[in-house]
């Protein structure tokens, strides 16, 4: 089959429901937490393992090469604290 635009614009259109990527598609999920990760900057080496493993993308890289948490959306799973090789993250109860 040759390359190039062989498709013609259809004469009839149907409208499919479209969603667009946006934060908070189910709201501020920070309210789901029962404990929150707290980063100890002095212990953090900036290895970025927590950033890599966080399922929520709520670990933010800071300008000094370390990390901070987006508490609006962090669900408090504790994965970051579990993977940190330097014990630089503690889970602190919020209830």
């Amino acid at each position: 089959m040759g390359k190039g635009p062989i498709l013609q614009a259809p004469e009839t259109f149907f409208i499919a429901p479209l969603s667009r990527p946006a934060p908070g598609s189910v709201g501020k999920t920070g309210s789901w937490r029962t404990s929150k990760p707290v980063v100890y900057e002095d212990k953090c080496t900036g290895c970025m393992l927590c950033w890599l493993y966080c399922p929520e993308n709520t670990i933010l890289k800071t300008s000094n090469g370390k990390v901070a948490i987006d508490y609006d959306y962090c669900k408090g799973c504790g994965v970051c604290a579990a993977v940190c090789p330097f014990e630089a993250i503690d889970m602190v109860s919020e209830v």
């Binding site: 908070g24 598609s25 189910v26 950033w51 929520e56 609006d72 669900k75």
Partner: peptide, 15 residues
């Protein structure tokens, strides 16, 4: 470092 997963989605914690 793009938001490939948008924070505030419906996944369970630790998904």
């Amino acid at each position: 470092d793009k938001k490939y997963i948008m924070p505030g989605n419906a996944a369970c914690p630790g998904c």
